[in-house]
Simulated assay, not measured.
Amino acid sequence: MDSCERRISEFWDRELIRDCLYRYCRGIDRADEAMLRSACWPGGTDDHGAYKGTTDGFIDWAMQTLPQIERGIHQLHNILIELRGDEAAVESYFTALQRQPGGEGGLVELVMHGRYVDRFEKRGDEWRVADRLVVFDWVEQRPAPDESEAERFAHRKSVGRPWPDDPVYRVFGAGRQ
């Protein structure tokens, strides 16, 4: 492979890794189990702080936890990728906003900033997370406003929903990877 072909291949690998990270975020925010599973290799590890175990176990845990979260938004920022053959070290900065039940009753809003520190593996032509460590750099928790969704969103429509009711699935279709 000449230098130009190698650079194009590396660029493509980086793009596939970014796409996988974005699938993970949609999977979490839309409670889309198939999308989540498409981002992680079975049998890998995941340390989210509140959960530590296998990637399969994390997804099972998340699918039980996500219905309790009224609203969730995960955004990615800086993404650093170090390719190492069929593996990659990836650090992705994130912001996560969640409105969910608090420990003492009532709803709270969590604002979390941190990094996903991932080891990706390429199997065939596909990159997925093999091992993940979530590093929290900033967390804020505050009581959620008492307003209902109708009051909070007022005329702002469409409003995000879990899978399969979110408007994105009308655009992307039922096939989710």
Rank of each mutant, 00 (worst) to 15 (best):
M1N: 11
S3N: 06
S3H: 06
C4K: 09
E5T: 05
R7P: 07
I8H: 07
I8R: 07
S9W: 06
D13I: 02
D13E: 07
R18A: 13
D19H: 09
D19I: 06
L21Q: 03
Y24N: 00
C25E: 01
R26P: 02
I28V: 14
I28E: 08
D32V: 06
E33Q: 14
E33M: 13
R37S: 05
C40E: 00
C40R: 00
W41C: 03
T45Y: 04
T45L: 08
D46V: 01
H48V: 04
A50C: 10
Y51R: 03
T55Q: 04
T55F: 04
G57E: 01
G57V: 01
I59T: 05
A62S: 11
T65I: 11
Q68L: 14
I69Q: 00
E70Q: 09
Q75N: 06
L76C: 05
N78P: 12
N78L: 15
L80M: 15
E82V: 15
E91Y: 09
Y93T: 11
T95M: 12
R99A: 11
G103M: 13
G105S: 09
G105K: 06
E109A: 07
E109N: 10
G114C: 02
R115H: 07
R115M: 09
R119G: 05
E121I: 03
K122F: 13
D125Q: 05
E126R: 14
E126P: 03
L133R: 07
W138N: 15
V139L: 15
E140M: 13
P143D: 07
A144L: 13
E151C: 06
A154E: 04
R161E: 05
W163M: 02
V168T: 03
Y169E: 01
R170P: 02
G175L: 14
R176S: 10
